[in-house]
Simulated scan of single mutants.
Amino acid sequence: MTNPTLNPWTITGEHEKYDNPWINVTEYKVLNPAGNPGIYGKVSFKNLAIGVLPLDADGNTYLVGQYRFPLEQYSWEMPEGGGPIGIDPLDSAKRELLEETGLKASEWIEIQRMHLSNSVSDELAIIYLARNLEQFEPEPEETEQLVIKKLPFEDVYQMVCRGEITDSMTVAAVLKIKLMMFEGTL
Rank of each mutant, 00 (worst) to 15 (best):
T166K: 07
K46V: 06
K150G: 07
P37F: 02
W22P: 03
L31V: 09
G163L: 04
M1Y: 13
T12A: 08
Y62G: 09
N32D: 15
K150E: 07
S168F: 14
D19S: 15
V120F: 15
T10C: 10
T10K: 11
P4Y: 01
E123N: 11
I111L: 06
L146I: 02
R113D: 04
P70S: 02
T61C: 05
I111W: 10
T10D: 10
G51D: 00
I177C: 06
S44W: 05
K149R: 15
C161M: 12
N3P: 01
D88I: 02
A49F: 05
E27L: 14
A57H: 09
P4M: 03
R162Y: 14
E142F: 12
L146T: 01
V160M: 09
P79Y: 08
E100I: 03
K42Q: 15
D167H: 15
F182H: 12
A172R: 13
T101C: 09
F136K: 10
L90H: 06
T185Y: 08
A57I: 12
V171C: 00
W76N: 11
E142C: 02
P89H: 00
Y62E: 03
Y40L: 12
E16I: 14
I11Q: 04
M1N: 09
P89V: 07
G163S: 05
L53H: 00
G81N: 07
P140D: 04
P89K: 08
G51Y: 00
V64I: 06
N24L: 11
K17V: 15
P37G: 03
G41N: 15
S92C: 02
V52K: 12
R162H: 14
E100F: 02
I50Q: 02
L31W: 01
K104W: 13
G51H: 08
K29M: 14
L151V: 11
R113M: 07
Q158C: 04
E183P: 09
S44H: 13
K104R: 15
T166M: 09
G102V: 03
G41V: 12
S106Y: 11
L31T: 10
E134I: 03
D167T: 08
F45G: 11
T61W: 02
S119G: 05
